[in-house]
């Protein structure tokens, strides 16, 4: 499974949207289950899966999925 496939699986699992397409412009406004708890669950699951630990200020700056892609790359995760 590629890193992108792992990431998609995490989003689908946490947001309970098995058909979710992970486009860079996607935001929490577009998905009804995407509240602060889900947001943190995504972050924590990604941290576990990819062995990284994000600075709190870094993940607060995420506005959409594209921002998260860039953040992951900054932390050394190839997508």
């Amino acid at each position: 499974m590629s890193n992108m496939e792992k990431l998609v699986a995490i989003y689908r699992e946490v947001l309970k949207k098995p058909d979710l397409e992970l486009k860079p412009e996607l935001t929490a406004r577009d998905v009804d289950n995407w509240d602060s708890l889900a947001h943190v669950q995504i972050i924590v699951e990604v941290e576990k899966k990819f062995g990284v630990e994000f600075d709190l200020d870094d993940f607060l700056a995420i506005r959409n999925v594209g921002d998260f892609f860039k953040l992951l790359q900054r932390y050394g995760v190839e997508l």
Binding site: L37, Q41, I43, L56
Partner: peptide, 14 residues
């Protein structure tokens, strides 16, 4: 508030 709340939520998740 958001930083406080997200810090709490992440700690809770751990």
């Amino acid at each position: 508030y958001v930083r406080f709340a997200m810090d709490v939520t992440r700690r809770q998740s751990r």
